[in-house]
Design a protein around this nucleic acid. Structure first.
Lengths: 154, 154
DNA sequence: CTAGGTGCAAACAATTTGCTGCTCA
DNA sequence: TGAGCAGCAAATTGTTTGCACCTAG
């Protein structure tokens, strides 16, 4: 369980059930398993998610993971990111404006989420300066995490 | 020619020749054509670059474009970016610290480059706050360019 | 000569899709 | 009973690589 306490599993489950129903689709055991597994382990790519899910349902296929993620994405329940390793990594969207950006350790691939309102404000300014109507953004910071800096100095 | 006057084609050519030589590789006509074409049209993906290059040398193969880009990348002459369309897009690295970020129109795919030192400074702050030693970053802003906003309102 | 290059086609890896049988409302 | 699903395998797409021939010091 790599997810902070602040996230509410029950609420997430309810949202998934509700949104999937709204699309006239069914919350099958496979789909719920994929959604719940992603809730508990953020930033997984399809392969990792598939492996994780198989620990509970070994017959669950690769295509089902892909199709479920696309469905969840359509429902606004998850979104994909790219951190430069050539695979799409998914994380859940909870209600409200929970946007955050990422800091990635180039050594151990650890991913830290953060928010910085001051930067967001400046982004809007820059966009306006160029006449753009901003709808979204992506910001990734790459560097060495504290642990990897320590072992680099050893 | 979609590149501002401030960029010096001759200097670029010289840098390419020099760096390729330094790697004990040869500045073949194909390689120079790829490099020069990329200079004149930034943000091309391999397919677009290949098509562009073929207008001058129709026999130039796909693999050569890929291999040349990898060579140029190794030489620090170009770098790849990903703007979410599933293909790698390349742009040239000129000397000095010419880092910039991108603003992408989600309607017409226009790409505008910009620099914002205030944001860069804040990024360093945020990183430090989390104990990260920052080495690089990527920031893309998505929205509607002025032209597409106008046609949306029409 | 011979190291390095080129183009083609085959190989790869991530992702998508066609199909056939299944299941639950 | 039939619309939506699952799993498998085949198909696509972006990218890389093996190979046979070629070319410039």
């Amino acid at each position: 369980m790599s997810r902070p306490e602040s996230h509410d599993f029950g609420a997430w489950r309810d949202r998934v059930l509700q949104r999937i129903g709204r699309e006239h689709q069914r919350p099958t055991p496979q789909r719920m398993l994929v959604a719940e597994t992603l809730f508990h382990h953020g930033h997984l790519n399809v392969d990792e998610l598939h492996q994780e899910v198989r620990r509970i349902d070994p017959s669950l296929g690769y295509a089902t993971v892909y199709r479920t993620l696309k469905l969840l994405e359509r429902c606004g329940l998850v979104h994909a990111s790219n951190f430069g390793d050539g695979t799409a990594r998914y994380e859940i969207d909870e209600g409200g404006h929970d946007h955050h950006d990422h800091m990635i350790c180039t050594e151990c691939s650890k991913i830290v989420e953060f928010e910085e309102p001051a930067i967001e404000a400046l982004q809007v300014d820059v966009a306006r300066k160029h006449g753009f109507a901003l709808t979204s953004h992506r910001m990734d910071l790459f560097g060495l995490c504290p642990e990897c800096q320590a072992s680099a100095n050893a």
